Amino acid sequence: MSQTDGILKPRLRRRSAFEYAAWCVCILVAAGILFSVSTNPNFKWDVVAQYFTQESILRGLVLTIMLTVVSMALGTLLGLGLAIMRSSRIKPIAATAGVYITFFRGTPVLVQLIFWFNIAALYPNLTIGIPFTNIQQAVDVNALMAPITAAIVGLTLNEAAYMAEIIRGGFSSVGKGQIEAADSLGMGSFTKMRKIIIPQAMPSIIPATGNQAIGMFKETSLVSVLGVAELLQSAQLIYARNYQTIPLLIVASLWYLVMTLVLSYPQSLLEKKYNRSAATIPRKARKLTAPEGIAR
């Protein structure tokens, strides 16, 4: 910083010749790629434009968004429960959550999706009821576990394992002094979690959760193996008929790119919001946890 008439001004950085050369090289490479892609007739941009807003493609896009929203919402809720269990001082509870997280993080999502779709091979029928009573209900697992149901179950259970670790990492970032102060005031677990731990953990949780949401949107393409007509499956069904494989894959890729950019914008806003409030949260928490009569 430089000072002029008592006003601090940012010091200007002198750009080197190497930086200018690097910019020139990057611009030339980008221009060459853009020219090649735009003039190569094999890309068939007219076909891409024709199918970009085609009805079945848009239906697949809506289904992809629905799978992303539902799986992320349910996965986050389940992940929160698992994070609390994993942080528990009761060994069996913490161990149960640890086994769940290890299993679902250690096996491929594609394998999990296929497993849940074929779960009826292991349990063709289930009976749900109240123990020691005659209140029971038989469930046909084969009819219940339709492709869309298997997709939501598989994506949700897998996402919950990753969200549990993200949330637990956010909990770990909260200062122990804040938690001890809340305990000393006799705060209940729910009040302490709502007013102390979660607000201070959010700056650590939000960026990773945003990345998981973007990853989940692209991960939904795996459910095409179950026959779910999401975005990629919709494109595959079209090029199976007209043999325009590359243009239809470009259509799907462009929609994935567009939606990734759309999801990135609110993520950046949330990050800025919580980063601005991160400095004020500890002060507010100290006011909340300070005993009466002590200066704040």
Rank of each mutant, 00 (worst) to 15 (best):
I197C: 07
W255A: 07
G60D: 07
T53S: 12
Q112P: 02
T245E: 04
A30D: 06
A290C: 12
A160S: 11
T209W: 11
M145L: 15
V29D: 03
I179R: 11
L80T: 10
I166A: 14
Y162S: 10
I206Y: 13
T156H: 11
S16Y: 01
G106P: 01
A161Q: 10
Q50L: 05
G129V: 02
A161F: 13
Q233F: 06
A151Q: 06
E292A: 11
K284R: 13
R241H: 09
E292H: 09
N134T: 06
R86V: 00
R296G: 05
P266A: 13
Y123W: 01
F132P: 06
K272W: 02
T39L: 04
I250L: 06
T39H: 11
Q212E: 09
P131H: 01
Q236R: 15
S16T: 15
M85Q: 08
I198H: 05
Y100L: 09
L67C: 05
P41Y: 15
N125H: 10
A17I: 11
V29N: 02
T76K: 08
G32P: 14
L61Y: 00
A143M: 14
S87I: 03
I206P: 00
R283D: 09
P10T: 10
R276Q: 09
G60A: 09
V37A: 12
R241M: 14
A151I: 07
S253P: 00
D46I: 12
R15T: 08
G106F: 04
E180G: 05
A278I: 04
G177Y: 11
P247V: 01
M216T: 07
I214R: 02
L269D: 13
Y100F: 15
W45E: 01
L12E: 14
I128Q: 13
L67M: 05
Q137P: 12
A208H: 09
L257Y: 07
G186I: 07
A213R: 03
N158A: 14
M187N: 08
L78F: 03
L222V: 11
V47H: 08
I93P: 04
V174E: 02
L249D: 05
Q178H: 15
V228C: 13
I214Y: 06
T39E: 03
K195L: 08
T280P: 03
T53W: 15
Y239M: 01
A229E: 05
P147A: 09
R13P: 02
T133N: 03
T220K: 01
V29F: 04
G129R: 09
A22N: 02
L144I: 15
Q3D: 07
A235P: 02
A290V: 12
R11W: 13
A97H: 05
L155D: 03
Q200W: 14
L122N: 03
R168P: 02
A21W: 04
I205H: 05
E165I: 13
L232M: 15
M66T: 08
C26I: 14
K218M: 14
T68V: 00
A208S: 11
